[in-house]
């Protein structure tokens, strides 16, 4: 049987699409509030630090950032093809590398907390 990495790539894209669909609008509202003069409790330094300091908080934050980046990277790869960019291998390397770098950075910052 021919080996393919498509199920992994697409599975993470689908997982990312689902997670972002559920949480991104509410998160955007949350971080929009400071611009309206209200800082939600969770965004206060001590509270967010405590949240991100707990292993479960780290896991949640990492999952959201990793899946969002992967979802965006994969969809961008397909979308660039639709916009007429035909260098798929180059595009794939660039977008997945960017998503991986961002995810590693997120893990690094979380582990420092």
């Amino acid at each position: 049987m021919a080996k393919s990495n498509k199920p992994i790539v697409w599975g993470l894209f689908a997982a990312g699409g689902t997670v972002t669909a559920f949480v991104i609008p509410a998160l955007v509202l949350l971080t929009l509030l400071p611009a309206l003069g209200v800082v939600p409790e969770l965004l206060a330094y001590d509270n967010l630090r405590a949240f991100a300091g707990h292993w479960l908080g780290k896991l949640v934050l990492f999952a959201i950032i990793f899946l969002s980046l992967w979802h965006a990277a994969h969809r961008l790869r397909v979308t660039l093809h639709d916009f007429g960019v035909r260098a798929d291998l180059l595009v794939a390397i660039a977008v997945y590398l960017a998503a991986a770098t961002g995810s590693l950075a997120a893990a690094y910052y979380l582990l420092r907390l």
Binding site: L27, V28, S68, A73
Partner: peptide, 8 residues
């Protein structure tokens, strides 16, 4: 995806 990525 551009905006989801930017927000991430």
């Amino acid at each position: 995806c551009l905006f989801i990525g930017a927000y991430a």
